[in-house]
């Protein structure tokens, strides 16, 4: 286990025994911040107080990377979950400007994660992958690539995962997620992080590394925890795939 990930919304400004234990962990292991509440595509003003808290939290614990979702989670008030943006020029402009604002506030480039979704908002003017590329290029931010989300969305909307990957700005990948998902009886895939990573996602992960070289990768597990041994097997498998692409020169150079 080379690093851990946490949601700053659960840990920043938290004292007491939990805060003490976290301090012990961050003194011994590297951590990554993966946010949930910034609502980068949302209609409310960007939450500067939250950004200040995240900045202070990262400084306090020596954390260098912060990523957030390409989604929205408020409608003026908090909805506390991630919702899909329409693939429109308006949403590109709005969200990219807010990402740029967040980067300025934090004084660092952030990674934006392709989010899972179960419906397509109306008015789309481009493909999902084109939308993601347009946002990260306009914001000049990094891409946090969730490989399971690529698979979930492609399955849910009948897209071709390899083509989808090819359209993404993989030269900007700074961080990768893999996870398992739930399959509903009607066939809809729900991104629960509550199951083992499926074979097609492992295959996609290797395809990503072939393009980007090995990248820091987090196995997400939020529910239905198996024993630690089962999780360790999956983490070892990530490391094994990374090793395969370690020596190979990546087909794409990282963005400067």
């Amino acid at each position: 286990m080379s690093f851990f990930e946490l949601a700053p919304e659960n840990w920043a400004r938290r004292g007491g025994e939990a805060g003490r234990r976290l301090r012990v962990l961050t003194e011994h292991h590297p951590f990554v911040c993966h946010g949930l509440s910034l609502s980068l595509g949302g209609p409310s003003p960007l939450d500067r107080d939250l950004l200040r808290a995240i900045r202070a939290f990262m400084d306090e614990h020596g954390i260098g990377l912060y990523t957030e979702h390409l989604s929205w989670c408020d409608d003026g008030a908090r909805l506390y979950d991630l919702l899909p943006l329409p693939f429109t020029e308006e949403a590109v402009r709005w969200t990219a400007a807010r990402i740029a604002q967040a980067q300025e506030e934090l004084g660092l480039r952030i990674g934006i994660e392709n989010a899972s979704r179960y419906l397509t908002p109306p008015g789309g003017e481009m493909s999902e992958a084109e939308f993601i590329r347009a946002v990260v290029e306009a914001a000049d931010c990094l891409l946090h690539l969730d490989v399971n989300n690529v698979y979930v969305n492609c399955r849910n909307f009948g897209l071709d995962a390899e083509r989808y990957l090819a359209e993404l700005p993989l030269e900007r990948v700074c961080y990768v997620h893999v996870a398992g998902h739930h399959v509903q009886t009607d066939g809809l895939l729900i991104d629960t992080h509550g199951a083992a990573v499926v074979e097609p996602v492992w295959t996609l992960l290797a395809q990503v590394y072939a393009r980007t070289g090995p990248q820091p990768t987090c196995l997400e597990r939020d529910a239905e925890f198996p024993g630690l041994a089962a999780l360790a097997t999956e983490v070892t498998r990530i490391a094994a795939i990374q090793t395969r692409f370690d020596a190979a020169s990546p087909a794409l150079e990282r963005a400067a």
Binding site: G41, D74, D75, L79, L83, L85, T88, A91, P121
Partner: peptide, 13 residues
């Protein structure tokens, strides 16, 4: 975009 979000948000609630 904001109209859509407010309308969908209302429905989600």
């Amino acid at each position: 975009l904001a109209d859509f979000q407010r309308c969908f948000g209302r429905h989600l609630r």
